[in-house]
């Protein structure tokens, strides 16, 4: 009886300690977000370059034949809040954030939330599907390679994936575009959808979107796959050296069973971590792929915002990316606590 009671108490103690651990992690994340907010605000402003010159076409790169008069400039600077001291701008930024407002883009002339909302789904669709596909294929091939260690199969896979890694993404994308679209008409040359399908039914549009997605996803999958393959292969090889695997073999278990039931679950932890962190960066888009395929996304928005020093957009996109990385990190922490018995909470 007392043994049962002790067991229950032990479980309760563990649950509480896990809860307080998660609370602690939550506080850490809050602190991290505060630092990120400060950095998001400061970094764009520390860059040389006056955002007003891009907004109005003044200064040494002006494409206009006449200069702006000081009165108009003062009115416009005040309108954009660029005449305020940084501290005031920072409080304004924070007060907007508290109200769920990411600000209004100076240069792009639209609410930042709207700019992000128009692009984030495309980026997530592209990057998440590529990473998931690359992870599945990479893990499968990594396991296969480790299984066939030292054989021609292993060497062949190793060589193919390393060669893939050596090809720059933009070159790979251009090759795919050239052969699978330009010369063979198999896939569209650019965009996320056909203009001609704008008024069609959702099923036709879905097919159209998938058709447009194929080449960008293939490019990004091929670019991402090697990291997953190498990580899985390495982790699997380490795991396969463990005593418990030797013991399982000695017990006469089937090789396939050893691989998938005993080795893979343990080998997967570092791979899952890498995938989760990579997924967190999905909100940042993939600039090369977006540029080659004329695909809408966050990468190009961030690059354009940087070029024209649109602070509001930079702040908003950095914040979304950071929050996504943190959120996935937090999820990972949760998974580790509950799924990996080796993670001890003190």
């Amino acid at each position: 009886m007392s043994c049962v009671k002790e067991g229950q108490q032990e479980q309760r103690r563990k649950r509480l300690s896990k809860l307080s651990y998660l609370q602690g992690r939550g506080l850490e994340y809050l602190l991290t977000i505060s630092v990120i907010l400060g950095l998001n605000f400061l970094l764009p402003r520390l860059m040389p370059g006056d955002p007003f010159s891009y907004l109005s076409g003044i200064g040494s790169s002006s494409d206009l034949a006449a200069t702006m008069d000081a009165k108009s400039e003062a009115i416009l600077r005040a309108y954009y809040g660029l005449d305020q001291p940084w501290l005031q701008q920072f409080f304004h930024y924070l007060s907007n954030l508290v109200q769920g407002n990411l600000g209004y883009a100076y240069y792009f002339k639209a609410p930042v939330a709207q700019l992000i909302a128009e692009r984030l789904p495309w980026s997530l669709l592209l990057v998440v599907s590529s990473i998931l596909l690359a992870s599945l294929l990479g893990i499968a091939m990594g396991v296969f390679s480790a299984w066939k260690r030292g054989t021609a199969w292993d060497t062949g896979c190793w060589a193919v994936f390393l060669s893939l890694r050596a090809i720059p993404t933009f070159f790979l994308g251009t090759l795919l575009l050239l052969f699978l679209s330009f010369h063979s008409n198999l896939f569209p040359l650019f965009g996320a959808y056909s203009i001609e399908q704008l008024g069609s039914s959702w099923l036709v549009r879905l097919k159209d979107i998938l058709w447009h997605l194929t080449l960008p996803v293939t490019t990004l999958t091929l670019a991402e796959i090697t990291a997953k393959y190498l990580l899985t292969r390495g982790a699997m090889l380490d795991t396969l050296e463990e005593d418990y695997i030797t013991f399982a073999r000695a017990r006469g278990m089937e090789e396939e069973q050893i691989m998938y039931k005993h080795a893979l679950p343990n080998a997967l932890l570092p791979v899952v971590t890498q995938i989760a962190l990579r997924l967190g960066m999905a909100a940042a888009g993939m600039i090369y792929v977006e540029t080659i395929f004329g695909y809408p996304g966050m990468g190009k928005l961030m690059q354009d915002a940087l070029a024209v020093r649109d602070f509001q957009v930079l702040q908003g996109t950095f914040l979304i990316t950071s929050v996504m990385v943190l959120a996935l990190n937090f999820l990972l922490d949760l998974c580790y606590v509950y799924l990996d018995p080796r993670v001890e909470v003190r």
Partner: peptide, 24 residues
């Protein structure tokens, strides 16, 4: 330099020689 930094130096006349391009 990147364009923003370059334009900023020209605007503040912090250069000896500058290569600059513009329309207008």
């Amino acid at each position: 330099l990147d364009k923003g930094a370059h334009d900023s130096l020209i605007a503040n006349q912090q250069y000896e020689i500058a290569l600059n391009g513009h329309g207008g």
